[in-house]
Design a protein around this nucleic acid. Structure first.
Lengths: 157, 157
DNA sequence: ATATCTTACGTTGATATCAACTCAATATTC
DNA sequence: GAATATTGAGTTGATATCAACGTAAGATAT
């Protein structure tokens, strides 16, 4: 009771009402739980689904490129890749043109899992879209989340 | 090449453009990184800040109540609490009225850390708010995220 | 009062997340 | 061509996340 004032309960309410970081974390947890449950029948988590989906492209991407797309640390991606490689869904091969790098690709088995998961994603996501209150268009939310995901906060840089 | 069709690259683009789960996870990671960096001087992570803040209330809440408020699993909260208890920022005491339960409270030290963190939160959050493109009002985003965080998806059970 | 049920937590095991550090291959500079 | 810088990944250590399982206290039924 010497230096600074104590944070009031009013302030606590303000933080919980306004903090986009907190709101985003909470929504992220809820959505992950929901998709985890929906995708369980095909043996995927929500994160694994997103990761596998981002490997489904004409040219096998590098690890760094995928990490940037997903907005996650490279080392996190390395860790997340392990279960996919272990299950034989994805492949990681040294890039012959630049032996520092690796090229990530889906295996036939991975494509099969992804094919099985797609209708589940469509159904679950349609439910979520449909249940959003009218003024909260899914596309607007998408745009907002995209803005929040910009590296240096939001301002760009 | 017998059973199902292969997921096309077009579909992959559709998923990445529309998936609110993916967009929310990515935004959550970006915001957590940003607040983690901003709060580092006071020794808090973004999650620890939110948790400490939610303990700042007149009546010491139970563990379950806090978990529900934060939208996280009870066992996750137990884990997240450990560093706070270890640092002497929070206290967990058996509820005398119901010895199954526990009451979580801030210590004087915890209040002090929270007081130091508050102006950092205000500054960082103001930056984020200010940088959101005009049509994406922070309050609208808040509402959207709140809707997404409803347990049973969005529809409310 | 005893047996059963429910509630509030904790523990364990698997995965996710990132900062800090290290290593190896390529690129640049001199 | 040797020294330095840059780039692409992996490793380690700390925390976060949740499902599955376990435990103890309170509530209910018989």
């Amino acid at each position: 009771m010497s230096k600074g004032k104590i944070v009031s309960f009013e302030t606590t309410r303000e933080v919980h009402d306004r903090c986009l970081c907190f709101a985003t974390q909470r929504a992220a947890r809820a959505l992950a739980r929901r998709f985890d449950a929906a995708l369980r029948p095909v043996g995927l988590t929500s994160g694994q689904y997103s990761l596998l989906m981002s490997l489904n492209r004409p040219e096998p991407p590098s690890l760094g490129a995928v990490a940037e797309l997903l907005g996650m640390d490279r080392t996190t991606l390395t860790a997340n890749l392990k279960p996919l490689l272990r299950n034989g869904w994805a492949n990681s091969a040294v890039d012959p043109d630049d032996r520092r790098g690796r090229r990530l690709s889906l295996t036939a088995k991975g494509r099969k899992v992804l094919t099985a998961a797609l209708p589940i994603w469509r159904r679950t996501h349609a439910e979520i879209d449909a249940a959003l209150p009218p003024p909260l268009a899914p596309r607007a939310l998408q745009a907002g989340l995209r803005a929040l995901a910009v590296p240096e906060g939001v301002a760009g840089r």
